[in-house]
Write a protein that binds this DNA or RNA. Structure first.
Lengths: 364, 364
DNA sequence: TTTGCACTTGTGTGCGCACACAAGGTGTGT
DNA sequence: ACACACCTTGTGTGCGCACACAAGTGCAAA
């Protein structure tokens, strides 16, 4: 059994007394401010190491007397949409850290409109924040923006989707590829062979689909290949259009006319509830369906057994931890992990209630 | 879109100035210490409400200059066992709150020996802690102990298993019944009818099985009844003995001799890795098996596809949140939720890595 | 020796709050 | 009139730390 932490009460004053110097000198050593002779510096460093001095962060924060004003640069959202969960987590952390004088402001962009992103990004570059939480929805534009922010020495963390080309402090989000892999396993396991399975994407006019959804599909296909299922299922892509009901319906009609034996479907976005509406209109038989994210209408469908599984990714936790990491870095000067994958949570009609309640409760 | 929190910088000094009184008077009102005339009290209360004054918890903690020494009264464990995960979460929170002068000491008992529990409990009653985290493994004895602690005004939180008869500040743990229900769904879904399914328990000499395991089985049976599966599967109980290899083996032999068509098994404890060892020795065919908890050998079995699913319950998070709640109550004087169910997490060979890594990373 | 400069070291103040204590005011009984 | 208790109010100190500033030291040039 590992030994217990001893919560030391060692203070700068104690170290000073032991080293036979004043607190100011200890302070200079701790912060490496120089102007200390080698002899004393080494003695103080030895004591600090020996007794494992840990500064009192509460007192430090009070004495620093500085604000940490974070800007969250994320997609605009309506209540109940995916980003509203991330927003809730950010707010939670902000509340919790308020006594450390942390606050968060938001700059929103339209996640389906690059111009909107570019415009807001330009505004941020003109008046750079102290620190930033950043959702890199548009890859190329985001890399560009992130690099410019780095030049301006603005520390930032990435949320939801990673950019390997840049060096943000941390990244929180799901491993999209693995989540797609998991979906394939759950969907195809037990599904009759020689049937058709739909791989659906939800698009917006003028966009080429999200990075996340693309990687999820790649993960799905990786499972199919690895398990040698390519010949056993007829995988058919289906495009739905978030802003075009007619086109979505006609696409579905066409697919169901073309393939009689459709047994399952996955949609690589949180819009499975919309797909269900369409499917009802074409009066298809019962499918095994998997979608993403615990949005309210998705949960209703899950409980009604219209959806077999939902894959979730603790969005509140993502937002929460992003704020916490910025505090760790900028206030407490602690080490961070660059990449933090959120687990691929599997929700069913049986466990979804506790999942949601728990996530939500963490937000109070 | 909800509006942003404004991190107020309102201080007691500001309130005092506005109310035309001294800071001491404001302090008396905030802490309801009396000795303030109605007129001033009302004026101060109005300002506090109006401007939504939030005390600076960092400064409060520093000024309070008090230690919070928590005792964790939990089962003794070896590295890698279930309770070591809870311990890790407690230590994590302890580290994080060290600057609030929080520390944790442990009192361990043998979870398979009531006498050990009684003895340690008596010791705690003789020298009551300031606050306590308590794992009520033995129900009746724990109720008794908890009530005595209440009389001594010792605030405590319950972990892992609930006691509805007592009024601990909070409870963190899984809803055992629901987790059993979930297991039944996962196990029986797709399992051929008219086959035999084993419901295994891991016992210790002289104990009648844990409360948790019993409730899990009840949840399992609830699913069976609700779905009308009682006649479709032959459910057979199997007792394994944690400290008696021979008896366990002979029980398994007997069951496999008696029933030729065993297709699946669940063990309502974290000892599925032991069951697998026994099963290998009797050389039975491939079963669909579900067990509990992400212990190292269980995870290995999961990845080897010897186990279909593991049900997990974020033990680190449980320990972590217990400490945090005691701090919320005793340092920050915030409201708590009495009952907090941990989600029923479903682990597969595909998602277990991220799950473990994430839980572990939270511990740094 | 004196002056000046660079480097080293100690002291004092404030962060926002809790709480001890002193000081002021009012009323009672003698 | 006084002493005294009681209630109300203000002031001062310290929590552990960061940082500004004053003070001290040594050394070289004048």
């Amino acid at each position: 059994m590992p030994e217990t932490i001893k919560n030391t009460k060692l203070r700068i004053k104690d170290i000073a007394r032991m080293a036979g110097v004043s607190t100011g000198t200890v302070d200079r050593v701790i912060h490496d401010r120089g102007h200390v002779c080698d002899e004393k510096r080494e003695k103080i460093e030895a004591i600090i190491k020996q007794l494992a001095y840990q500064p009192n962060l509460v007192a430090r924060s009070l004495a620093l007397n500085k604000d940490l004003s974070i800007v969250a640069f994320i997609p605009r959202f309506e209540a109940g949409e995916y980003w509203s969960y991330i927003h809730a987590g950010i707010e939670k952390a902000c509340k919790e850290m308020a006594s450390y004088r942390v606050s968060v402001k938001y700059v929103f962009f339209n996640q389906y409109d690059k111009n909107s992103f570019e415009q807001e990004a330009a505004g941020l570059l003109a008046d750079p924040p102290v620190a930033m939480i950043f959702a890199p929805v548009f890859i190329d534009e985001s890399v560009d923006f992130a690099k410019k922010m780095e030049k301006k020495k603005v520390p930032y963390v990435l949320i939801d989707s990673d950019l390997e080309q840049v060096k943000g402090l941390t990244y929180y989000g799901q491993h999209s590829h693995k989540s797609g892999y998991q979906v394939a396993k759950l969907l195809l396991d037990g599904l009759p062979e020689k049937t058709t399975v739909l791989l659906a994407h939800s698009l917006r006019r003028g966009t080429q689909g999200s990075n996340q959804a693309t990687n999820r599909e790649k993960g799905f296909m990786a499972y199919v290949e690895e398990q040698g299922l390519r010949d056993k299922y007829n995988l058919v892509r289906l495009d739905l259009h978030a802003d075009n009901r007619e086109e979505s319906l006609s696409n579905i009609h066409r697919v169901f006319k073309q393939y009689a034996n459709i047994s399952g479907a996955v949609i690589f976005s949180s819009r499975v509830h919309r797909m269900l509406v369409y499917l009802k209109e074409v009066k298809c038989g019962k499918l095994k369906i998997i979608g993403y994210d615990e949005l309210e209408p998705n949960v209703v469908a899950l409980k009604n057994k219209e959806v077999a599984y939902l894959i979730a990714q603790r969005p509140e936790m993502q937002g929460y931890l992003c704020v916490k990491d910025l505090c760790k870095e900028l206030i407490f000067k602690q080490k961070l992990h660059r990449v933090n994958y959120i687990p691929v949570d599997i929700l069913t009609a049986e466990n979804v209630d506790e999942y949601i309640q728990f996530n939500h409760r963490l937000n109070e």
